[in-house]
Amino acid sequence: MIVTRQIGFRIAAIVLAAVILQVSFFSYIQIFGAAPDVVPVVIAAVGLLGGAVIGAVVGFAAGFLLDATLLQTLGVSSLVLLSVGYLAGRYRESFEIDGSSAPALLAGGLGLLAAAGFTAMALTLGVDGTVSGLVVREVVLKGLLAYLLMFPLYPLIRFSLRPALVLEEPSTRRPIFRKRARPGRGRRPGARVRRASAPGRAL
């Protein structure tokens, strides 16, 4: 991903929208006792599109914003979300993303990791009493919800950041007009053949 100033603004807008939507909408929705966590899904998507460094930096910034908004201990969400962004980016750099379910599966795994990370950090920082077993159910459900959320979010974020993406999938469309070889103007013997570059391979 090539991050120009305009793309930077777009990423900032996506992160801000995700944090605001999280605290004022998604946190109110309870699905079998767990609220969907949209921020790790967005960070995973950005990491998948932009790579490890961009994923980690955006995760850190989103975590700072989330902690500041909720007036929580600063640094907790940053630590968890930068890990999510970094791991998503490393996956993109190491493996081929083939099939539409790969990003969703990755988001499910990272959502589970993020929920477990948030819970572990919260418990480490200040629980004197007992911990309810419902915490485990919440972590698993959040992973499942992250898997489902990635299906609409990944194409949406990819569309928003499309101008910055270095390599797009080669287009399968055929060109509409194809030049016909003119009679009597054949290739000279020994002349080099010019190959057209792969269609849709935008740089």
Binding site: A35, T69, L70, A122, V135
Partner: peptide, 12 residues
Amino acid sequence: TRSPSLVNASVG
């Protein structure tokens, strides 16, 4: 606002 986590039960 509302915290997304069950462990931090707080609202803004």
